[in-house]
Design a protein around this nucleic acid. Structure first.
Lengths: 350, 350
DNA sequence: TTGAAAGCGATACCAG
DNA sequence: CTGGTATCGCTTTCAA
């Protein structure tokens, strides 16, 4: 039988409240009594208040649920994701709060149960498509849910459309007209290959917005969307990016620019170029998104977004949701970082 | 006021038990009644049993605490760690259990509180030195704690000593006599640089064991430990490995072999070789530990350990601790993978 | 400062 | 199948 507050109280001859105070409110009793209580506890093998009981009573779970779809291994392989989590963990730690990982392998009953049973004070949604039932389940919990897309009332993100629009304008200025776009979650079956994409109908918020930005920039320069090659990647990784890029590069005429919706994919594109003895920025221009460390190392043009800060703000929003609706939706700035992977369209390419 | 079980029970005109059963034991009541209850719940905005209350009553927190010292970013950057976590997550998911991350930034009061307040069914300790107070706090909780070192009664690991002994013997057979060892956690201050190491006194279990294996192999071949250069790395990363390797390589006579206690460090050693126009396996032999994917890509000789399996077993041990003491300690096999980064000691090197 | 009483929201167990 | 009763272990008024 494990000792409880009561056990200790009986031993010392005080009430439960006093023992509770000894742990949670040291200023509410004399140091001597406190010491006496703590000693008795040690004697009895009592290791402090039961966290679950404490949670129930105080109404605070002491944990933030982190919802994400991708497999753990993928989630933590993406430097952007890791930075985001780091920011979140930092804020959580400052508030004596843990992080409960809730991987959503499939959008099935198991996942729903996981969401419903998570003892958390709120959820941070990291890269979960809005159509997931699990999202409904999260909202249904009636606890704060912080999103990265426009859904829900608590939100921290960036202006995705404006970000890629700037990147698209950059390409237009360089004279590119044959362009391919590589993205994850742009075909429903998530398989590698060419797809015809009606941008508005994309289920994934991030893909939809990022493609929209490019489309708008191209349109403004008179390049119709139907001229743009859209290629679906089967996942967000370097390898998937390279596989998708192959579909763009091994055709004639070859595109003069291949842009991707994430840096990881774009690095894959650069890998694919290397395989074909093509030089990024001279033969084919490449643009990514995120500005992860490897992007700088690869001299890659990309859109920089503040991943760490995003995580921090997500945590703060969740732990202490502002009343002012305006403050509940935070949009962070992004910046187009131009490096050597983009250059003028090769002469005669038009 | 959020609705509770009672609210729903009152509305339908049944008892709390019945409503509870509707959620947790569907087979205990008629489908019609169940449907009626679920509908009433939907009406009232009741979203299912409160996880915390359920935990308190059932005595099951529904989460595994993952204790680790390194910063989140580092923890998830190491492919070995990610694999381990993946195995753990897999088992957790199968058992409807979540993973609660408990980063131990410092070994301070905050960390102790985090350990004491975590609502978990047990802890998996991942790379926390045994001397941490936080470890005491974890054991004090009176819940299962699975370790990777020899501490505690629940344990899953490998025979560290035998693993590196095999690697050391490989080096001896190749004729190496001037050897440097790079390791994290081998100097108390964890700074880059040469250290004189009394192997037995190393605080870090993993470092102690791995160095011991090498020492034994060298001793058996008549190479005294005092002839071996031991170098402390300031962390477990490629960069730290390269920095530490510099201390070994920029001396005369140069070592003919540099071994590291992890693959990440060993990759850094290879980076350092590249910088100096030295070829791994010809000019300087290199051995790592873990066999992460990048090791194969770098043609690196290393010790393979089953990271995924280790995670899985840790999860199973924790969720269902065997009574048989022998089964509570699992030792997994390792294998020396010889690749191109090791070769005969250069002629005239002795 | 200390203590008594009242729950927090749910589940286990058994009787009907 | 359904309902009553007794907790689970703690925190929180509020009065002494």
């Amino acid at each position: 039988m494990k000792p409880t507050l009561q056990t200790v109280a009986d031993r010392v001859g005080v009430s439960r409240s006093t023992v509770s105070n000894a742990y949670s409110r040291p200023d509410q009793l004399s140091p001597e009594l406190r010491e006496k209580i703590l000693e008795a506890a040690r004697d009895l093998g009592y290791t402090g208040p039961n966290p679950t009981a404490r949670s129930l009573r105080s109404g605070r779970a002491g944990a933030i649920g982190v919802l994400f779809t991708t497999a753990l291994s993928v989630a933590f392989t993406d430097p952007y994701a890791v930075q985001f989590l780091r920011g979140l963990a930092e804020v959580a730690e400052d508030n004596r709060t843990g992080l409960l990982l809730v991987p959503l392998r499939d959008d099935d009953e198991g996942a729903l149960d996981a969401v419903r049973n998570a003892a958390v004070d709120g959820f941070v949604v990291y890269c979960v498509p809005g159509w997931y039932q699990a999202m409904e389940a999260a909202w249904a919990r009636g606890i704060p849910v912080v999103n990265s897309d426009r859904l829900g009332s608590l939100f921290v993100g960036i202006d995705e459309v404006a970000s890629t629009r700037a990147a698209g304008e950059h390409l237009m200025r360089l004279g590119h007209r044959r362009i391919a776009i590589v993205g994850d979650y742009i075909s429903p079956d998530r398989r590698t290959g060419d797809v015809t994409v009606a941008v508005e109908e994309l289920g994934s918020y991030v893909s939809r917005e990022r493609l929209t930005g490019y489309r708008d920039a191209f349109a403004a320069a008179g390049l119709p969307w139907s001229d743009v090659i859209t290629i679906s990647a089967a996942g967000n990784s370097r390898e998937h990016g390279a596989a998708a890029a192959a579909h763009a590069l091994d055709r004639s005429p070859r595109p003069t620019a291949v842009v991707a919706t994430t840096d990881l994919l774009a690095l894959g594109v650069i890998d694919a170029l290397a395989t074909r003895d093509l030089r990024p920025g001279r033969d084919v221009s490449v643009i990514g998104f995120d500005d992860i460390p490897d992007a700088a190392q690869a001299h890659m043009t990309t859109v920089r977004q503040p991943a760490l800060e995003r995580g921090r703000i997500a945590g703060r929003l969740l732990l202490d949701p502002p009343d002012d609706p305006a403050q509940r939706r935070v949009v962070l700035p992004t910046e187009l970082i131009v490096r050597a992977s983009t250059g003028p369209a090769p002469a005669g390419s038009i």
